[in-house]
Design a protein around this nucleic acid. Structure first.
Length: 662
DNA sequence: CCATATGTTGTCATG
DNA sequence: GCATGACAACATATG
């Protein structure tokens, strides 16, 4: 019986402390242990990853590699530049591998990837060992104990968790490491298909991910940003297990903070330092174990003499919410990330709905511009040019630093969706996916559904004001002054609504509030608000009320085939007009003719004619401005619609997930 | 089945 | 400055 030759495959667990999977690998007493990372084209080209998150990943890998080398100078993190689905069969053979060990991943793509790799291992006669360590509980077990249903409330998580039993205590980091064996590859590199490349925007130079299997120097080293052709990172936050453990240690050392932490009472306006732990990016990359975090906190809470806070507002409660979202995602797979065909997500006729591939039933990444004004709102929101300083400061902090406080995320998400723009939550989720350092697909998707009141939360009449809410935390507006420097000179009376300042004062304070068309303003100016918030809040509230009354969920046949339109008044907020639309909100027709036709006004049926006239009467009265020009705008965007369709089709060809529909 | 309380994180006017 | 209720109203948990 030959001694085991083991590959340890790092993915979402870039750490040595508390890794059940790494322990399992070492328990095999291998002759050789190969710690590897596969440079997966899915993340390079298909998933949205901004420069700051790339930098953070490289930080984690560099730190991990150096920790491995400290345990054994011959060892390190071997980065191999090929898709795992094609690499492994060749690697198994070249290195005479007997075992493959990794930590379980329940992300929709991760699960699909791991299933195919496990099949390849089986075919090659390689044993696979999988251990759970990414979450407090195994998400699949959580679902099983929740009657096989996605975990949609914190009490469900608590009840299911109780049935599962205790959360495992952390495992010590290894003290020594076996040698890696010979590392000759002796096989050809399979080049990935680059197009479509959703991360082209992240690059400044030649994309160099796949120059050679073992990298440009042939030494399997961790890539650099320059080598990958990426632009420079802008964030000050850095990754790696060493930093993660140091940060955790500092938090734990403050017993009072740790034991009495209540999330809703932490200030979203605090910066340098921020009011929360900023450990979420470390959790995302696995440079900090969530179970280690849990128990280090729980031990402080247990020994705390005063009144400790309780879940769900306490620190450990935050981790339970994370498990809740993982449970929902584990149960629903790809459809968790979209409205279409999602049984737990309410259907709302948002503006800018996602395009859906007719073959896979999954979101393509493109969207329909049903309304030019909404597209403008979206771009201004994304680039921090809405004219609402609180919103703009948050979006600029997000873009440059990759992190904003949880309540700040609430504010911008509510504003984009149900409390301002009435734009599809999937648009916002995509921006967060690109920019957040701590982007965790399950948590991001779940939180966007929460804030848009499409799942997890339903009290849509609780709406964040971009003026009143920040005032509760930061009367003087220090946060706005930091991230919207144009307004630094403004009196605190006007800091959240600068358009109300007298023109003389605006001049005196060095910034005029002017109408801005695009997402760039002239020096010495700041945009007027892009919408009348109080009016829009009313429009959104009515829209939500109406959509809730209609009561459709994403998997309703009427959503899937497009007949949902019959249930909405033509004048209702959103792309509701016309009785014959595409299936879903959203799905593009196969043929271009069909796609165009659906925006040509239909001859009115008697029933519709009646509605139409009633609407004209309404219009003459108090129809909100945004609704009034909807139709003109919709007609005006036909061109954009068709080009987008082409793009969507192209993306569809390479959709990695075609088998998941139905 | 019902009724009732509760839900991590709203706003505004009023006293 | 701070607590209170109205606003208009949803879903889930619990008895």
């Amino acid at each position: 019986m030959p001694k085991p030759r083991v590959i340890y495959w790092f993915r979402t667990d870039l750490r040595l402390h508390d890794s059940p999977a790494l322990k399992a690998a070492l328990d095999l007493k291998p002759e050789f242990l190969y710690p590897i990372w596969t440079w997966d084209p899915h993340y390079v080209y298909r998933a949205r990853v901004g420069v700051n998150r790339w930098q953070y990943l490289l930080d984690c890998q560099t730190d991990l590699s150096s920790s491995l080398s400290k345990l054994n100078p011959k060892s390190k993190l071997f980065v191999i530049r090929e898709a795992p689905q094609t690499l492994f069969p060749k690697l198994f053979q070249a290195w005479k591998i007997t075992h493959l060990v990794f930590e379980k991943d329940t992300d929709a793509y991760g699960r699909e990837r791991d299933e195919s790799v496990m099949k390849l291992a089986k075919d090659a006669g390689v044993q696979v060992v999988v251990k759970v360590g990414r979450t407090l509980y195994d998400p699949d077990e959580l679902v099983k104990q929740n009657k096989g249903k996605p975990t949609m409330s914190i009490s469900q998580v608590q009840a299911a968790g109780k049935k599962i039993g205790g959360i495992p205590r952390p495992i010590a980091a290894p003290k020594k490491l076996p040698d890696p064996g010979p590392v000759e590859l002796g096989f050809e590199q399979e080049m990935p298909k680059k197009e479509p490349d959703v991360n082209a925007v992240q690059r400044a130079g030649e994309e160099g991910s796949y120059v050679a299997l073992a990298g440009p120097k042939g030494d399997f080293s961790v890539p650099t940003m320059e080598e990958l052709g990426l632009k420079e990172a802008t964030t000050k936050h850095r990754g790696g297990e060493t930093l993660a453990l140091k940060a955790l240690g500092e938090i734990i050392a403050n017993e009072e903070y740790t034991a009495t932490f209540e999330k809703p009472k932490t200030a979203p306006t605090a910066f340098e330092p921020q009011a929360t732990t900023l450990l979420s990016p470390h959790l995302h990359f696995g440079s900090l174990s969530v179970r280690e975090f849990y128990w280090r906190v729980q031990d402080v809470v247990d020994s705390y003499k005063g009144q400790a806070s309780q879940p769900p507002t306490s620190l450990t409660g935050q981790l339970l919410f994370r498990d809740m979202y993982f449970g929902a995602q584990a149960s629903l797979g790809y459809t968790f990330g979209q409205t279409f065909n999602n049984p737990t997500c309410r259907f709302i006729p948002w503006h800018l709905p996602s395009s859906i591939s007719p073959t896979s039933g999954l979101a393509t990444g493109s969207y329909l511009i049903d309304n030019a004004a909404s597209e403008q709102h979206f771009q201004k929101w994304k680039h921090g040019m809405t004219g609402f300083p609180w919103i703009d400061a948050l979006m600029r902090q997000l873009a440059s630093e990759g992190w904003i406080h949880h309540l700040g995320r609430h504010a911008v998400a509510c504003f984009l969706t149900r409390g301002g723009c009435y734009i599809d939550w999937e648009r916002g989720a995509q921006v967060f996916e690109e920019w957040l350092l701590d982007h965790e697909a399950a948590c991001n998707i779940g939180n966007w559904q929460w804030l848009s009141c499409t799942a997890f939360f339903a009290q849509f009449y609780r709406c964040y004001s971009p003026v009143a809410f920040p005032q509760k935390w930061d009367k003087h507006g220090d946060f706005v002054r930091r991230y919207v420097p144009e307004l630094r000179g403004f009196d605190q009376k006007y800091i959240y609504e600068p358009w109300k300042a007298p023109v003389a004062d605006q001049k005196r304070w060095g910034c005029r509030i002017v109408h801005v068309d695009g997402v760039e303003a002239e020096d010495g100016t700041y945009p007027k608000p892009m919408l009348d918030f109080n009016k829009r809040r009313e429009v959104c509230l009515q829209g939500m009320k109406n959509a809730y009354h209609v009561g459709l969920y994403g998997n309703d046949p009427k959503v899937l085939d497009g007949s949902w339109r019959m249930l909405f008044d033509d004048g209702a907020e959103g792309p509701t007009e016309g009785s014959k639309g595409p299936p879903g909100a959203m799905v593009e027709h196969e043929d271009a003719d069909g796609a165009e036709e659906r925006h040509v006004p239909e001859p009115l049926s008697p029933k519709k004619a009646k509605k139409e006239s009633a609407k004209s009467e309404k219009k003459a009265g108090t129809m909100p401005a945004a609704v009034k020009h909807k139709r003109e705008a919709g007609q005006g965007t036909l061109d954009g619609l068709v080009t987008r369709k082409k793009k969507a089709k192209k993306e569809d060809e390479v959709a990695p997930n075609e088998t998941h529909f139905g």
